Computed example of a mutant assay.
Amino acid sequence: MRALIYLAAAVAAPLLSLPTWLAAQNTPSSPPSGRGSAGLHLQVTEPRGDFGRNTDNGFGLGGYVLGALDGNGIVNLRGDFSFVTYANTRRRIPLAGTGGLIQLDLRTSSNIVSVVGGPQLLGPSGRFTPYATALGGFSVFWTESTVEGSQNTNTPFASTTNSSDAVWAYGGAVGAYLRVTNGRRPVRLDVGARYLRHDDVRYLTDDRVREAFQSNRPAIPARGRADFVTYYAGVNIIAF
């Protein structure tokens, strides 16, 4: 709840500064932010609450598109996509019937794909441009196991989805652009943090995967609320 309060304050704060933003957009020293842009970034997720007690940090990639809804480029619409892996294990197992002469790699990975979107407010357009975004959409949590030869990396010959669940996601993001190049296609650094909440989701943890492997039975997913903060850094390119 505290995180939601902080997030709401962060999203609402730019609304109080709209007159200042409009004035800044009309000054000659404020270069335009463009009508549309796209971004790509690296991500590190920090799980919170029960999800944080059951899982570790995640790592992955994200991308988004941004389109202006007004002539000043203050109010925008953002579409966001991200992929992160929060657990990844490998176990060496013998192929049955070979007396241990043929070894296989059993790999298990737990992942999250999020597709969200919403309004984004930009601050004064210049070398440094802050922004705040409200987001809503969905996320898919799934865990998959694959088997491959110990010398045949990334060529699995069998796979199983151990758990999968799609749920609504909502939250917001705050960040800033730092312009590094001008020209026809300006490039900006993009750093920020995004908070997503999922009220009821099934997911697997490392402990439950380990228990299933040791007892030779299907893994039993955990279920409950899953919140996490994603810290990201990347580039934003103004397309037009």
Rank of each mutant, 00 (worst) to 15 (best):
R2C: 03
L7W: 02
A10K: 02
V11H: 00
L15T: 07
L15G: 01
S17K: 07
S17C: 12
P19R: 00
W21F: 10
A23E: 14
A24R: 03
Q25V: 03
T27N: 06
T27K: 08
S30W: 08
S30Q: 10
S30F: 04
P31L: 14
P32K: 05
G34L: 08
G36A: 15
A38G: 14
H41M: 14
Q43D: 08
T45L: 01
T45V: 11
P47N: 01
G49S: 09
F51R: 13
G52K: 07
D56I: 05
N57R: 10
N57G: 05
G58Y: 03
L61M: 06
G63A: 15
Y64F: 09
V65Q: 07
L69W: 03
L69D: 09
D70F: 03
R78M: 07
T85K: 05
T85D: 05
Y86S: 06
T89K: 12
R90E: 15
R91V: 12
R91K: 11
P94S: 06
P94Q: 12
L95D: 13
G97P: 00
G99C: 04
I102F: 06
Q103T: 06
D105Q: 09
L106V: 00
L106H: 01
R107V: 09
V113Q: 13
L122A: 12
L122I: 10
P124M: 04
G126T: 09
A134Y: 00
A134H: 00
A134N: 01
G136H: 01
G136Q: 02
F138Y: 14
V140G: 01
F141L: 08
F141E: 14
W142E: 13
E148P: 02
T153H: 04
P156I: 11
P156T: 14
S159Q: 15
T161E: 08
S164E: 14
A166R: 03
V167H: 06
A169K: 12
Y170E: 15
Y170D: 10
G172F: 05
Y177W: 06
L178R: 04
L178D: 04
V180K: 13
T181E: 02
T181M: 00
N182Y: 02
R184D: 13
R184C: 05
R188P: 00
L189Q: 08
G192L: 04
A193G: 08
R194N: 05
L196A: 02
D199M: 07
V201A: 12
D206L: 12
D207G: 05
V209C: 00
E211A: 14
Q214S: 11
N216R: 13
R217E: 15
R217L: 03
A219M: 07
A219H: 09
I220H: 09
P221K: 12
P221L: 09
R225Y: 02
R225L: 10
A233R: 07
V235N: 09
I237Y: 01
I238T: 06
